[in-house]
Simulated scan of single mutants.
Amino acid sequence: MKRKKLPMRDGVGIIILNKKNHVFVAKRKDNPIDKWQMPQGGVNSGESYLSAMKRELLEETSIKSIEILKEINGFFEYELPDNLVGIIWKGKFRGQRQKWFITKFTGDENEINLSTKHPEFIEWKWILPDELPNVIVNFKKKLYLDLLKNLKKFID
């Protein structure tokens, strides 16, 4: 199947801020080079974006203690590079179209546990928002720059 005929996967993403407005990022298990990302994932059939966001956050980080600060207007997209199309998501999608949420982590850091049922991450940390575009894989850089604009309007 040709790349452009593949649909975009419906997804969600979560910006998690701590008390200092630093952003949660984690290192993927399947790509343990020095690249980090914010939690994100797919939306199941019949699931709302809000429900998907809470489920993905719990599945990937064990985090439950959040306050939702904003659902960012519109959608954000990224396309997989050619070498990953056909590998990621069993070749069913060419990228993701995501609804993003800005949240505040209200729990204790002991709550954060990457050893979940199906672990996706091996390490996590808090970073300054301006560092986001520098830590992400290249094919998601534009998406992270767009998210950063939305985040800066919100936290400045």
Rank of each mutant, 00 (worst) to 15 (best):
M1R: 10
K2T: 03
M8H: 09
R9P: 00
D10N: 12
D10T: 10
G11C: 03
I14H: 00
I15F: 02
I15G: 03
K19P: 01
K20V: 01
A26V: 06
A26F: 05
A26E: 05
K27D: 03
R28Y: 11
R28L: 14
P32L: 05
I33W: 14
I33Q: 15
D34M: 09
K35M: 14
K35W: 15
K35C: 14
K35S: 13
M38A: 10
M38W: 07
G42P: 09
S45F: 11
E47Q: 15
L50D: 15
A52L: 09
A52T: 14
M53R: 14
R55L: 03
E60N: 06
S62N: 12
S62I: 01
I63W: 05
K64N: 02
K64Q: 11
K64E: 13
S65N: 13
S65E: 10
S65R: 11
I66V: 13
E67L: 13
I68K: 04
L69H: 10
L69F: 03
E71M: 04
N73K: 15
F76G: 10
F76R: 14
F76P: 09
Y78Q: 04
E79T: 08
P81V: 12
D82W: 02
N83W: 09
N83C: 07
L84H: 12
V85H: 11
V85E: 10
I88M: 13
W89F: 02
W89I: 00
G91N: 15
F93H: 14
F93N: 12
R94K: 13
Q96F: 06
Q98M: 13
W100Q: 01
I102F: 12
I102Y: 12
T103M: 02
F105R: 01
T106A: 00
D108Q: 02
E111N: 06
E111M: 01
S115V: 00
S115C: 03
T116A: 05
W126H: 07
L128E: 11
L128C: 04
L128M: 05
D130R: 13
P133K: 02
I136A: 12
N138M: 01
K141T: 09
K141W: 00
L143H: 06
L143T: 10
Y144V: 04
Y144H: 04
Y144E: 11
L145Y: 09
L145G: 04
N150W: 03
N150R: 06
L151D: 09
K152Y: 12
D156Q: 15
